[in-house]
């Protein structure tokens, strides 16, 4: 009885919608063109695989985006967690400050970084005033720089996620192990490689997986920061779906894209957990 509300909520608003996604994906369903609606079979999927270059382009960008973000966030997050795990003066305050972007929304991140990147209001103008670079740099409008400009903004709010999770796990490493290793003359690097990393193993696997899925799915930042542009260069697959649904009202096709995205994610997650032997402490 106690679990009924959870069960009903999740069946009604997670499982049932997932089923209806698959149902819609087999339909022609376009709110703007209701006269064409009807059963479509696998036609949406055929269009998507063979006739839609934007599908492949957005999938490619999604993969690049996820890999770059997750790797950089993990490395920086791990370094940050190790630093704030040391004892030093001002530790509590430092933790609160460096973790704080975690609580900030994608739209707010965009608002802040738009101010920073804008050629008139941004950093570049002040750097140009000092003679360090040329006036008029607009990282978000330039196809050469837009990717890294977006990556940097997402890093800003993404690193704390890893730092918090890894710090939580670091605090459960037994101090005795380090002391014993230090007595045996193990260098700091060796202690890190042989004690810290193995201990963090499962936390790293789980957090990278959760984060990959999250980075793949999340659209807030790119939707508002670049709108997927310039020229669809920063369109991820979910962003493409959102645009299909919101602008072209082509629900049938958008749900076919959704289904493919879900299959890709599930497949990736299973393979990742298998390959990484999650839960098998050596």
């Amino acid at each position: 009885m106690l679990i009924a509300p959870s069960l009903i909520a999740m069946l009604g608003f997670l499982v049932y919608p997932m089923g209806s996604v698959i149902y819609y994906s087999l339909q022609h369903y376009n709110v703007a063109k209701p006269w064409d609606n009807g059963f479509a079979g696998l036609e949406n999927f055929r269009t998507l695989l063979f006739e839609d270059p934007l599908f492949w382009q957005s999938l490619g960008f999604s993969v690049r985006w996820v890999v770059v973000e997750v790797v950089l966030q993990l490395l920086l997050g791990l370094a940050l967690a190790l630093i704030v795990n040391e004892s030093f003066v001002g530790r509590a305050l430092s933790r609160a400050l460096v973790f704080s972007p975690w609580a900030v929304s994608g739209v707010l991140t965009t608002a802040i970084w738009v101010l920073l990147y804008n050629p008139f209001t941004g950093m570049s103008r002040y750097l140009a005033d000092m003679g360090l670079m040329e006036y008029g740099a607009a990282p978000l409008a330039n196809p050469d720089t837009v990717f890294w400009a977006a990556v940097l903004a997402e890093l800003w709010r993404g690193v704390p996620f890893f730092a918090i999770l890894l710090l939580a796990d670091l605090q459960s490493v037994s101090k005795d192990l380090y002391e014993a290793a230090a007595v045996d003359g193990a260098s700091r690097m060796r202690r890190f490689l042989h004690i810290t990393l193995p201990h963090l193993r499962d936390a790293i696997i789980l957090s990278t997986l959760l984060r990959s899925v999250w980075e793949f799915n999340n659209v807030d930042l790119l939707y508002t920061l670049t709108g997927g542009g310039p020229a669809h260069q920063t369109t991820t697959l979910p962003l493409y779906v959102a645009q299909q649904a919101a602008q072209s009202h082509n629900f049938g096709y958008a749900t076919a894209l959704t289904t493919v995205a879900f299959l890709i994610l599930t497949f990736f997650s299973i393979v990742y957990l298998r390959l990484s032997k999650f839960g098998a402490k050596s």
């Binding site: 009604g12 997932m18 209806s20 819609y24 899925v213 799915n217 979910p238 749900t255 894209l257 879900f262």
Partner: peptide
């Protein structure tokens, strides 16, 4: 297990069915 699996459901991609509901 089901609850863990829900973590892989793309939240952003659920807008269409949720909208219908």
């Amino acid at each position: 297990v089901g609850m863990l699996c829900t973590q892989f459901i793309p939240g952003a991609l659920m807008i269409i069915p949720l909208f219908e509901i």
